[in-house]
Design a protein around this nucleic acid. Structure first.
Lengths: 266, 266
DNA sequence: TGGTGCGTTTGATAGAGATCAAGCGAGACT
DNA sequence: AGTCTCGCTTGATCTCTATCAAACGCACCA
């Protein structure tokens, strides 16, 4: 493993605040692995032996039931995933698949649990990370139960814009059918939702989406800080209160600037 | 506060494994409070100053957006709630309201965070609790994205049956309109879903639901251990792997027997 | 260069769920 | 008892979303 990779791992919210010893214990048995695209890393129901840290590429988490499948999250570097299963030493509830060539650090679950027992600061960091993940899912559920598909897409585009600091031009990071499943609709309906957003200044050309009128789009999307983690708050951002730093298991735009991140786990 | 109440709190998964000192630190500033029914305990967006422990009664967690509202969870004793917000010292993402007369222990968030810093075992317990909560939400999302409303109702009834150890007669614990919102549908459609289940041996009389053919109901519901935490697994239950003991922030049937509980946080 | 495969789009149709509007029934109050 | 309220049900209708089917565009490749 390269030293620069260890640096990146060390910079994760999960490890920043942690004693050097603890970090060594946790990453002692870790190994770096490369996977081609479209590779299954983990099947739901499998025992989880490792904490995964995505260093490069994209990973999709999905779930299945009765021959139906849905995408639950799409991860980009640097993110950890299935921390919850590792903490409980339980079986995975989601399957993981690479969407493209990936570089992944695998840390034995035992090492994580041992480090938690040794270092209360690490226990605290794990708790904070999990709390962030939990709150991210609360946001997701509110998004799904309170909004229709067009509203979800509109907010997704605004989140993307906020995450990428892009002006009016946004680039989709994954195939539309994957995005459709993530947003809880069919590819056909995603197309129609994009069409519906034309009246609000949105035009699509392949993966490039142009937002000609943020105002009009926001009027439809009505982004809400209690659902969309990028949405502006009334007043200055309180440092600690915002510490659900988008840590892991979610889409992440800019690893080096957590406070500007888009949809988070919180 | 009665000693018996402290006993009940101590028996929570969050505190069982914890040093007596830590428990004292955590519960030092706690106070017990009674609330009438239909009282708002917390509004989404509010800063969260306390960890709530529901000792008696029922509490509903819900979220709103754009004049729409949805029930996210219904809690029964003994449950803790908004632990995630407490850990992060963040604002609430869900509102909390009593559904009936309630007895609630309120523990200052500072005390919880201090205890975490002092006792790695407590940090571990918090992590485990949050991991369980997280996994519960993953199950919820899979339930909503992969199943239609009738299937969700069918599985809800089976979960209730498993939780209550009731034979073929199940009692609904809350108003049907609350249940409808929890299951992500309108009261009207809940009625129709019940009607549709008649063909699978389900009859309703007020809050009493009779399941005349578990087999037929399961054929429709297809309960899955990776969605429904009560569903039987192939083989013996592995102790540790099942430790997402339904800890908190969720519907709970029998406080004294965590392993037989229904829908959990996992 | 002309397939060939795949992701996407578009159209037509069907089904699931929401909304609107009444009516029913049980408990509460006068 | 009467009636009022409120939660639940039932029916009609409308909207949203899924499904089925076909066509398009584009990359890949022989």
């Amino acid at each position: 493993m390269r030293a620069s990779d260890l640096e990146r791992v060390k910079s994760l919210p999960l490890f920043t605040d942690v004693a050097a010893d603890t970090f060594r214990v946790a990453t002692a048995g870790a190994h770096l692995q490369r996977f081609p695209g479209n590779t299954v890393l983990l099947l739901e129901g499998d025992p989880v032996d490792f904490l995964y840290v995505l260093l490069d590429g994209q990973v999709e988490l999905h779930g299945t039931w009765n021959d139906r499948e849905t995408v639950l999250a799409i991860l980009r570097p640097v993110s950890t995933f299935i921390l919850a299963a590792v903490v409980l030493d339980a079986e995975a509830l989601m399957s993981a698949r690479t969407l493209e060539r990936c570089e992944i650090l695998m840390i034995p679950g035992d090492a994580i649990r041992t480090a938690m027992r040794l270092d209360p600061r690490f226990g605290m960091a794990v708790s904070r990370d999990l709390a962030g993940c939990y709150r991210g899912l609360v946001r997701t559920i509110k998004n799904h139960k309170l909004r229709n598909s067009t509203e979800r897409l509109a907010n997704y585009l605004l989140a993307l814009r906020a995450a990428d600091n892009s002006g009016g031009v946004v680039r989709l990071h994954h195939e539309k059918r994957v995005l459709a499943s993530l947003l809880g609709m069919t590819p056909e309906n995603l197309s129609r939702a994009f069409a519906a957003l034309q009246q609000h200044g949105v035009t699509v050309e392949g993966a490039v989406v142009t937002l000609r009128s943020i105002g009009a789009l926001e009027a439809l999307a009505k982004p809400d800080p209690l659902i969309d983690n990028h949405a502006p708050r009334g007043g200055e951002i309180v440092a600690e209160a915002d510490a659900e730093v988008w840590s892991s298991e979610w889409y992440r735009a800019n690893p080096s600037d957590a406070s500007a991140a888009g949809k988070r786990h919180g």
